[in-house]
Design a protein around this nucleic acid. Structure first.
Length: 423
RNA sequence: GGCGGGUUGCCCGAGCGGCCAAUGGGAGCGGACUGUAAAUCCGUCGGCGUAGCCUUCGAAGGUUCGAAUCCUUCACCCGCCA
């Protein structure tokens, strides 16, 4: 278990510090007692995703080491949107953002402790911005931001060509003001965030120095990328959402299970609470016998348990074993099949009159987006019924094809499975 | 406010009256290899009742036998000038 002082060493070992203000000063500050720190989440969607998880878990590591978390959900900043390279954002409706604020808060809560001497606190920057007058804002905050320096910031400079609104340009002022207010009212002295937030983090620390002559710290976590340099976190359903309604826990688990070998150590360090020894050991064993996928299995188990609970993870593991175990599906009892296919996703279809063909079944189960895509998949040899390749697009599976319990196991490609129960 | 440029499929981007469901790249998807890795190679990539039909090229009208391509109006974006 990390202590006040050495938590920074742990974070560094895990590769979680991409950038920080004076490292030694931060180290001794963290050693001086329970440091109040904050991390912000903007409600730009109804759920957090993999990228946010890095911050959430980092917040938890700091709390476990005895420091005191302030979790900010950006009811105000979420209405503005920070500048990103892909271009100007579309503003979300007030009601939508409010709804998302609640959802995001609900998602964050299970990860931290709200009891004890270093209990976590939830804050919302809407509380101190909504009633702020424009004049006060410009005089008290705006005055401390030289436009020439703001223009020099990377995120802004990259947007000067394609265009950037005053709204997004001003985002950094709001986030800096958050840090200032939390510093003033709650004694917060540390902020962290993703590496893309670095400019906003330092701007806040600067503002505290200018206005309060206070000393604040900041660090950023690295942007995780795949070996080819592209971003992580995309699945067929879009982003790697934490909300089980938006991405099934089964699909979530599968994402981690399919992580590339080269990234196993890095991801174990960032996303699990396994000890240094356990991780080093897993890395060594994975490198020796990569085909056993020990690292992937541990990673998938740990992260899925953190997000969806260990009971759900047990069910998913059993489902994966049944469906990917390589054994004969016909040997599986109906109860096992049912449990596994519920995790993986399933639908029901009539067994008698109105029986559906494979093409329709592929669409019904969501394995294919359209009948055309289903037909294409079949002609490409990518469709399987009960682990046997489907070659005839006109095939209409009936009770004779069903496994125990009336189940059909449909598969598209290597890893997309769904169940159909004939009733 | 004036003038000029632009708005094309998930993204970027060609096309500038018929040969356009629309070149190319990326992403995605499938196959081969393997380990439910990576890399590579091959195929595919609007919808449907798939040798045919339907709906797409910012929106609405119009010209034409025929429009993503021409005209008009509107919306939005970019630039220059005021």
């Amino acid at each position: 278990m990390s202590t006040h002082a050495n938590v920074l060493d742990d974070l560094e070992w895990r590769g979680l510090i991409a950038n920080s203000t004076d490292r030694d000063a931060l180290h001794s500050h963290l050693g001086s007692g329970s440091v109040r720190y904050y991390v912000g989440f903007d409600p730009t969607a109804p759920s957090l995703h993999m990228g946010h998880l890095v911050q959430v878990l980092t917040a938890r590591r700091l709390q476990e080491a005895g420091h005191t978390p302030y979790l900010l959900v950006g009811g105000a900043t979420g209405l503005i949107g920070d500048p990103r390279d892909s271009g100007e954002r579309t503003l979300n409706a007030l009601d939508t953002v409010k709804e998302w604020v609640d959802k995001v808060r609900g998602q964050l809560e299970p990860f931290l402790s709200f009891e004890g001497p270093n209990a976590a606190t939830m804050v919302n920057n809407y509380d101190w911005t909504a009633s702020l007058s424009t004049i006060d804002f410009l005089r008290d905050i705006g005055k401390h931001f030289p436009v020439n320096r703001m223009l020099a910031r990377d995120t802004v400079r990259r947007r000067l060509d394609s265009g950037i609104s005053y709204t997004e340009f001003s985002y950094v002022l709001l986030q800096s003001m958050d840090f200032l207010n939390l510093h003033r009212d709650h004694g917060v002295t540390l902020q962290f965030g993703g590496s893309d937030q670095w400019g906003n983090l330092t701007a806040g620390a600067d503002l505290i120095r200018r206005v309060e002559q206070g000393h604040a710290h900041a660090f950023s976590t690295p942007l995780l990328t795949k070996s080819d340099g592209t971003k992580y976190g995309k699945t067929e359903g879009g982003a790697l959402w934490l909300d089980p309604e938006m991405l099934s826990p089964y699909a979530f688990y599968q994402f981690w299970l399919n992580v590339e070998d080269a990234k196993i150590g890095e991801l174990l360090r960032v996303f699990t609470f396994l000890s240094h020894d356990e991780i080093t050991d897993l890395e060594a064993r994975s490198a020796e016998k990569p085909f056993l996928r020990l690292g992937q299995k541990a990673l998938a188990r740990e992260v899925t348990s953190l997000v969806h609970g260990s009971e759900e993870t047990d069910r998913i593991e059993a489902a994966s074993a049944a469906l990917f175990g390589g054994g004969d599906l016909r040997a599986l009892p109906g109860t096992t099949l049912a449990a596994a296919l519920v995790e993986a996703g399933s639908v029901t279809a009539p067994a008698g009159d109105g029986r559906l063909g494979v093409v329709d079944l592929l669409v019904e189960t969501g394995l294919a987006k359209s009948k055309g895509e289903a037909r294409r998949t079949i002609s490409e040899g990518g469709a399987y019924l009960n682990n046997e390749r489907v070659t005839d697009a006109d095939l209409v599976p009936g009770p004779d094809d069903a496994l125990d319990g009336g189940w059909l196991v449909l598969r598209r490609g290597k890893k997309n499975l769904a169940g159909v129960q004939l009733v």
